[in-house]
Write a protein that binds this DNA or RNA. Structure first.
Lengths: 344, 344
DNA sequence: GTGAAAGCGCTAACAC
DNA sequence: GTGTTAGCGCTTTCAC
């Protein structure tokens, strides 16, 4: 049997409540008692029972992350691990534990989150992605739970969220290619039900429009966050009679797929095709050629999400803070886009 | 206020204990009562309070993962994310939640694990790495906690662990190069305090020895699990008067660093240098040339660790199961090692 | 098959 | 500044 607050109290010759007060650094406790009690705790190897504390305080000091049903199909592992690192780091700094949950379909996700939240095991949830018509968001929103979305919800513009300005980021990427003289620019998007895909598509189109450039439907391809998508998009583009001279890609991994395909067909990057992608994972500098990419501050996204969620948990009443946090992005130009189109 | 077991009991006209029995599918409960109570639970939106249950049952149905202090410095993110995916998948299947913890130094790690375990918040721990003289292992071992190590402990050979046969895996990789006619084979190791580094070094040396080949001290380089280490090792090797014609590398990411360096110096892989590394991350097939690598079944390591830990939690008494599980490895040969040394 | 009662380890009024 | 008391929501003997 573990040593409890009562055991400590008895040994110290004080009441359990005094011990409890020492534990929580209650102001009205004598330095003397506090010192003595702390000593005895140390001596007896006392450890507060977190569950018991939670039960009475009605707060768990933990938050939960929902992993998407099939992480490997949606995003690169790198993305999620970075996010998690950011979340966990900031959470521990604020004294919160992080629980990881996942479900193999949307129903399981809702059930899991419901069990954890309604069962009072966690105080809030971080959603790592934003998709259209997400029943998990509906559930969280309708039941007044604390949660923050990494990304953007179209349905609930007013919920707590941490996001990049993806429209602007994609605009920047496209603008970069335009400034190099490119006039035929393609776009490889992600799954259409993800908000991030839509935002980046919009930025791309806006940039073309503002520059007075043509946007052809056939220059836009949808796919997954997978190499295969890039590979397929590449072979589609390269067979076009009027093929693009450069592409903006939703994700580095997709760009790697394009790179591989181009390599097999003996095309040269950037001479035959310029590439700019998103996420700036470490391997972008290692590929041949190194890949231009938009750094979206993944760690920072996670870190901030953690921060915002815990803040909202701690003052559920006032909502003085920013509902929507934007993490800055930054275009990192590397060899894959260092080629100006010759004037004609 | 959330609806409790009492509320349900009152509404159903039964006692709280009956409701509790329905919840845990007690055998001696009438089908009729059970049906009725379940209906009312549904109606009232009842959710069992996990904390309260834990408090009395003295079991939390959750396990904890310790993230190494600086994941980014030690291993690739990919490795950890795969591990976590495996762990979380199997844990949820068995009805366990997974908590992620981390510390910025060994003391914080011990404190964190101690708080969680002694505070009765988790039932067991998975350690994601094995280093020499790890105080976390000491703590876990000395206090009789449930834990499993992914890797191997030199100090405690008898603890629960899930590992590859790293000696054999490294032997296989080296043998592969030998069979291609290589006689000067280098080895780029990881941090020397990690057991995995030692095991793989041993396999490499054994293979050389069994083949009657020379092993030179200068052909062995230690580093981190970072590209930079590979880069540095490469420039060291290539400046040797009697330089190796092939290298075994502790990790794919390190191999990428070598690849970049060779590229910059206009060396060709595999003609000038053959490479075989470990982990077989998805990008190994995308690099130029694609990288030969040992697939160590990362997901499987995590999955099995989860399984073994939960098993040990559930029957703390009997120890009929295997103390040490070995996950099979598999050499994937790609272009980076497809070059036989010309006979002389 | 079901109920009454005690108690898991802790906190928080309310006393003094 | 400290003790007393009640109770958080649940399980689990022990009755009947």
């Amino acid at each position: 049997m573990a040593v409890t607050i009562k055991d400590v109290a008895k040994r110290a010759g004080v009441s359990p409540s005094t011990v409890s007060r020492v534990l929580s650094n209650h102001p009205r406790i004598s330095t003397e008692t506090s010192r003595k009690v702390k000593l005895i705790m140390e001596e007896m190897g006392y450890h507060p029972n977190i569950m018991a504390k939670s039960l009475v305080s009605k707060t768990t000091n933990s938050i939960c992350i929902m992993l998407p049903k099939s992480a490997e199909e949606l995003f690169s592992n790198f993305f999620f691990m970075e996010l998690i690192r950011g979340i966990v780091t900031q959470a521990s700094r604020l004294g919160y534990d992080v629980l990881i949950s996942s479900g193999s379909n949307e129903k399981e996700e809702v059930d899991g989150v419901s069990r954890l939240l309604n069962g009072r095991r966690v105080d809030g949830v971080i959603l790592l992605y934003s998709r259209k018509d997400d029943p998990v968001i509906d559930f969280l929103h309708d039941n007044g739970h604390n949660f923050v979305l990494i990304g953007r919800s179209e349905q609930y513009p007013d919920i707590l969220s941490v996001d990049n300005n993806n429209v602007q980021a994609s605009y920047d990427a496209t603008k970069h290619l335009i400034s190099l003289g490119h006039e035929r620019i393609g776009f490889v998007s992600g799954p259409p039900h993800l908000v991030v895909s839509k935002d980046r598509l919009k930025g791309y189109l806006d940039a073309l429009h503002d520059a007075g450039l043509e946007s052809k439907q056939e220059w836009i391809v949808e796919g997954e966050f997978l190499q295969e998508s890039g590979y397929r998009a590449m072979s589609f583009f390269m067979n076009l009679p009027d093929r693009p001279t450069s592409i903006v890609l939703i994700d580095d991994v997709v760009a790697f797929g394009v790179l591989r395909g181009l390599n097999e067909l003996n095309y040269k990057v950037p001479e035959d095709l310029c590439l700019v992608s998103f996420n700036n994972i470490p391997l972008t500098e290692l590929s041949t050629p190194p890949l231009s990419s938009i750094d979206i501050g993944i760690y920072n996204l996670g870190y901030t999400a953690s921060q915002v969620l815990i803040q909202s948990i701690q003052n559920s009443n006032d909502a003085s803070y920013q509902k929507r946090q934007i993490i800055p992005h930054r275009l990192i130009v590397r060899d894959s886009s260092m080629y100006s189109v010759p004037k004609h």
